[in-house]
Amino acid sequence: MTDTVLSVRNLTTSFRSAAGPLTAVNDVSFDVRQGEVMGLVGESGSGKSVTLRSIMRLLPRGAQIGGTVTWAGQDLLKLSDAGIRAVRGGQISMIFQEPMTALNPVLPIRIQITENLRAHTDLDANGRAARARELLDIVGIPDAARRLDEFPHQFSGGMRQRAMIAIALASNPRLLLADEPTTALDVTIQDQILNLILDLRDEFGMSVVFVTHDLGVVAATCDRMAVMYAGRIVETGTVADVFARPNHAYTRGLLGSVPQAGAERSMLLSIEGTPPGLAAIPPGCAFNPRCTFAGDTCRTTRPELTSLGPDRSVACHHNDAVVQAGSPVA
């Protein structure tokens, strides 16, 4: 068993709204180990991005965060503001979906990288300048010396994402939180960025939490995965195991929704209906109105996330029937 670097327990995040509190993340627990890529998968509104932001405490003031997030022996949720600032962007870095809105449009890339170096390293001005150039080289931006003085709008989408990764790497983080870093990119560029993240993981021994809705990306990059639906984790396991034997009807449906080779012009295994809004999460199992396996218990009793073995758990009353039905991608 490898060492756990980040341990999230019973994380619950709610926001105030006119209609009362809305719980976006509900009782979420997972571990991230040294050097692994952990995938958080779900559709829009499933709470995967809010989970990441809760870990980093990057939420608007009205948000209530409960539970514990243990990092290097301390609970990040209980740290002082100065304490969390030392961790955030230092030991733990984050990259976002839209590099154009995450980068400052009026500052050249050089300032945005050295800013992070000044905050989290002891380098002097010369050292910072050299390191900034080195970082652009590491993330594969050619002609680094010249590009450091350019502004984000002069970069293409893929280059901006590389620049953002360079900023995130500036402090030699031990954990990288990636929030859909390739969703806005074209497939050939996505392929480049995914390989870059994996190379950096190997080189620096970072752990990565990868939030995405694309099961292809999960299959290509992650070691373990957790599937989220309506704010809760419904299934966890190693990627190979979850793809081969989905235990939750939602996971099975998601896998079947992705078009496969060899099944051209056939019906996809779709999930009827749409994901529920936070204000109207159905009673019992949140997935029951869309589930073909649902019975009476599903409509009244919420299934607990139960362990099926090491690294494997599911929250479904009928997981045996789901396993029987087989994986759509096996």
Partner: peptide, 9 residues
């Protein structure tokens, strides 16, 4: 080759 396949193997 760039498109990720839904097959972790």
């Amino acid at each position: 080759r760039a498109a990720p396949e839904v097959n972790p193997t």
